[in-house]
């Protein structure tokens, strides 16, 4: 049983990470941070760089929670998060949500929405 965090470096990321840590401490488990690279450009700022990964682990250690980071390359971001949740037998999936414009929703679809609808466990949506 773990807490799985769908992590994208954006404005809600910090709040979501803190929420995940809190939940993990409460449940006495670790956090698996899933940072999916959609792999649709040669470089991508949605991927957490090496030192960013180190910072996440350190913040986990400070809070007394074991943080592991997974960085799969998968065009289906929500699917990759759900896969990971299933693999780790997650008790909870934490996902950051943002306010989106109507056009933005039309173009991009919502990763958070798919996770909420398709996850087999509880899902916690955190607003940034």
């Amino acid at each position: 049983m773990t807490v799985v965090l769908a992590h994208v470096p954006n404005e809600s990321a910090d709040a979501a990470f803190d929420a995940a840590l809190e939940q993990a401490r409460f449940r006495g488990t670790g956090v698996v941070v899933v940072n999916v690279a959609p792999g649709d450009a040669p470089v991508d700022d949605r991927i957490v760089p090496e030192d960013g990964v180190a910072a996440l682990t350190r913040r986990g250690a400070d809070a007394g929670v074991e943080v592991t980071v997974e960085q799969p390359v998968d065009g289906d971001v929500a699917g990759a998060v759900l896969d990971s949740a299933k693999r780790h037998d997650a008790a909870l999936v934490v996902v950051g949500v943002r306010r989106r414009s109507a056009v933005g929703k039309l173009l991009m679809g919502s990763v958070a929405q798919r996770i909420i609808l398709d996850a087999d466990c509880q899902v916690l949506g955190v607003k940034g």
């Binding site: 959609p38 649709d40 065009g75 289906d76 039309l106 173009l107 679809g109």
Partner: peptide, 9 residues
């Protein structure tokens, strides 16, 4: 060809 692209994009 890109597996993730939407038709609008």
């Amino acid at each position: 060809a890109s597996p993730t692209i939407s038709i609008i994009r």
